[in-house]
Amino acid sequence: MGVELFVSKEEETPDHCVYTFGTSAETIGHVRLHKSSGDIELADVADAAEGANPRFVLAQVVPRLHDYHDRKTYPPQDQWNA
């Protein structure tokens, strides 16, 4: 059984999108996806609680955000199992 992950867009400008990310049980942090380059910047991350490892969750989120950049689509929210 996998971990249910999510991203939710909090802010969008012509230059970037800011996404909240986490599991179905908790918000882990925020990342900024730069639209021109596809670079992803970790804005903040919560202290590790009893749940999914923040590094594991971030490692699952980054490829998903790169996919958004490659398709030039920035959905308001997404969820999947990892």
Rank of each mutant, 00 (worst) to 15 (best):
P63Q: 03
R64D: 05
P54E: 04
L65I: 03
P63S: 06
H69P: 01
K72S: 13
Y74D: 09
P76Q: 11
Y74P: 06
D70L: 15
P75M: 11
Y74F: 15
V61K: 02
V61T: 08
P76R: 11
P54L: 03
A59P: 01
P75C: 08
H66T: 13
N81F: 07
A52L: 04
H69A: 03
N81Q: 13
D70G: 08
H66M: 12
K72G: 07
R55P: 00
V57P: 01
R71Y: 14
P76L: 13
T73R: 07
P76H: 10
Q60A: 14
N53E: 13
R64M: 11
R55L: 13
Q79C: 08
G51Q: 08
A52D: 04
T73G: 01
D70C: 04
R71I: 09
H69I: 01
W80E: 09
P76N: 11
R64V: 15
P76T: 11
V57K: 02
L58A: 10
N81K: 06
A59L: 03
P75E: 14
Y68A: 09
L65H: 00
L58I: 03
P75W: 11
Q60C: 15
R55Q: 12
F56H: 12
Q79N: 11
T73H: 07
V62I: 14
K72P: 00
Q77R: 12
D67V: 01
R55S: 09
Y68R: 00
Y74G: 04
Q77E: 15
P63N: 03
R64P: 01
D67T: 09
G51F: 06
H66E: 15
Y74Q: 09
L58P: 07
L65N: 02
H66K: 12
P75V: 15
P54D: 06
V61A: 02
V57H: 03
P75D: 10
H69Q: 04
T73V: 15
A52V: 10
F56N: 08
V62S: 03
R71F: 14
L58W: 07
Q79I: 00
Q79G: 04
Q77N: 15
R71V: 12
P76I: 06
F56I: 05
F56K: 12
R71G: 01
P75L: 15
